[in-house]
Design a protein around this nucleic acid. Sequence first.
RNA 1: GCCCGGAUGGCGGAAUUGGUAGACGCAGCGGACUUAAAAUCCGCUAUGGUUAUCCAUGUGCCGGUUCAAGUCCGGCUCCGGGCACCA
Length: 873
Amino acid sequence: MDSKYNPQEIEPKWQSFWEKERVFEVEVDKSKEKYYLLEMFPYPSGRLHMGHVRNYSIGDVVSRYKVMRGFNVLHPMGWDAFGLPAENAALENRVHPNEWTRRNIDYMRGQLKRLGYSYDWRREFATCDPEYYKWEQAVFIDMLEKGLVEKQKAWVNWCDKCNTVLANEQVEDGYCWRHGDTLVRQKELSQWFFKITRYAEELLEWTEKLPGWPEKVLLMQRNWIGKSVGSMIHFKLERPYPDPETDGEIDRVVVYTTRPDTLFGATFMSLAAEHPYCEILSRGTDREKAVREFCDRVRSEDKIKRSAEDYEKEGTFTGAYCINPMTGRRMPIYVANFVLMEYGTGAVMAVPAHDQRDFEFSRVYGLDIVPVVQPPGQEALEASAMTEAYEEPGVMMNSGEYDGMDSLEFKKVITDRLARENRGGASTHYRLRDWLISRQRFWGAPIPVVHCPECGVVPVPKDQLPVALPAEVEFDFEVGNPLPRLDWWINVDCPKCGRPARRETDTMDTFVESSWYYERYASPHCDTAPFDDGEVHYWLPVDQYIGGIEHAVLHLLYSRFFTKVLRDLGYVKFDEPFTRLLTQGMVLKESVKCPEHGYQFPQEVKDYKCPVCGKDVEIGRKEKMSKSKKNTVDPEEMVKTFGADTVRLYLLFEAPPNKEIDWSENRIQGPNRFIHRVWNLAVSRVEKIKDVSASDAAKYDFLAGPSDEKELFIKTHETARDVTDRIERWTFNTAISALMEQFNALADFDLEGGDDPARRKVLFRWSLERFLAMLGPFCPHLAEEIWSALGAKESAFHLAWPDFDEAMTARDTFELVIQVNGKVRARVNAPVDAKKEELEKIALANERIQDFIKGREIRKVIAVPNKLVNVVV
RNA sequence: GCCCGGAUGGCGGAAUUGGUAGACGCAGCGGACUUAAAAUCCGCUAUGGUUAUCCAUGUGCCGGUUCAAGUCCGGCUCCGGGCACCA
């Protein structure tokens, strides 16, 4: 060993050793219990960021730990390689996105290897490999045939910057998830959808059966699915209207409500601006122009404005009326700006007495308020006296024969009656919408269908897959997405009739690729099917998945859906992809902003002055590292300065995995110093213990030896217990602090003292070896280096995890705490397992305690064996 | 508005089922080594009290249960996150 710790030298050495010895390669082995550990794969943006390093360092601890515990561990890595940044880079640099992507992958693979992660690199693939998306296209065709994918005309989200549509899950607060500054517009377009709504109930039910997931994520998914139980109610129109779609007639408006009990109080009807009836009902009347103008205006407003809290409730009368099925009342039909087309039927029965929005609306437009639910135990509501809607349950009133009935009970009664009379019935709704998966972009998996003027939509036959992206394409800002212009690529013969047809030019949402990549890792090179049956059912489901909380309803919901689809298509036999999930905390850093020059790199800011102009800067709060805020720290720089082991140890020691980390250059000194101390201790001791073997430790009874030997022996056992426990409980920061304690004990242990030098050496070596074994998952290079300096020929990767024997930690005395009235007044040594009575005797005999109880009456003495005695006076 | 989390020294964080609050580390202070600095090593470090091995106070606030509360119960405050005109 060099006297100086030099990670730049030892880390690459061990990395190539692991690669050469194929240490991390795994195969199906039915004699061993499998463990599939997965971290969310990265988008190859160019360089790893600190969040990646944290994610993968957490995973690597568990992976290496499970190997040492005897599991057959699958730990793969790959690339989420399709997506917009590659395409934008292509436009800017006029290179094919593939070239940009591959270059980034090569670079980032190198970065991952320099961090020493235990991946089986033979299983690596990128989602932009045609051998990968070929199988995605095959599944798409299966789904098409099963009716799980459909082209629908709908109002969809459009981002002007992405130049494409977006799924609901990709719209955050009305803004594009990629471009936080770009408002999403609504456009009516014909697009491809995955029928995820068919799985709404199953996806919801299974959230109750995933105990290994954080409750928070399950809750977010439940909210997103948004189940509500209510009724459909038909309202007859006053007169029929012609239906332009079917050439038939429209005679009713159907609404969905969770408050059928308030039906007697429905005094008008509200339609969404996107509702087709707005036009139909007003056509040819004097309301036509006003309705069209109102609808156009509302529709052109962006989502964020429409969902703002102070968005004023507005509407306009369509000129049409419908009839309340219970009261026969003539109800005017309005278009209202607060009614959403995407929820329920886009039409709402308005009950101003019992819905605050309807109440406000009725005030503005002078519509009748009829209370039908009476607050229990209070006087009946009086419409003229109401200042707000009464939304709670109560007792029915103004509801004919049902007056006096409990409103909750009435819900069932009225729904049953409507169903019996064919005027409605029970209905369940979900907030979840179908997943819009088509994108008007080049760099994605092509949707494998052709459009034939004769046969319509025709899937590409499976033996002609993949429908590969063209390799020879010019990229130009003026043109944008080149795909729709590539006549040679688009013009094909219809696979069905052979006549000229056109290829679909939309590609799939990149979230489709990430919905099943983890299943492909089981047999990444299988070329006859998406998965090899034996492999996928040996390894899957993923036992532990680790990634960011930001995917709580995106990737994690899509993946659950896709797995269920694959199951129903007969590809897999399990229901859920991820048994356990850890959402790791983000790595944060404060941002620094100059009022004139915007965000600045904190490390370039001195004395709170802008490095450009010298003006005072604002120190922002700690937030997620991002390029736009310039608050990033490049992990590669950190690895160059401190070494991979130190960066890993810092990220693991700073906080528990699920908590945020405030990046601090200061605090990396702790782990850095610890690693140097470990190195220095090894350098100074290795030669002295070379001639003894740790296995001789079994020959000695250290518990009977000198007290310092006994203490090190017990500490070593206790550390095995604590580190194991804490890894199992996912608090790696405290696992590391336990290792630090054992190290401190090792460093304090005097190798020279005692009566039997050989025994001391054996003890020290045995303790050091166990320490190194447990250090391995955290600092693998350091552990390997010292392990080999001790004479080992095998990799420390395959060491057995230190066992723990309770009997080996048996001390014969403990520190007894003596309290008077619950306050600690003395500590004395007492024999372990002393009886309560003995402890009481010891406590009362103590001089200091006697001072405290002198002249006072002892009311009670409580003794807790091996802990404390409390004297109550 | 609704639903989840949180709140412990100057800082990150410990404290399995109520039983020694502050493990481990950072920063700080003092000392050793050094011509000097860095590094390293040793010691101190919750707050207050004329800082002895003593006393008092102390885990966001108010109250309760208990021999004993960071931990349990009731009522708040603040912070973070998710959802939100969902009929």
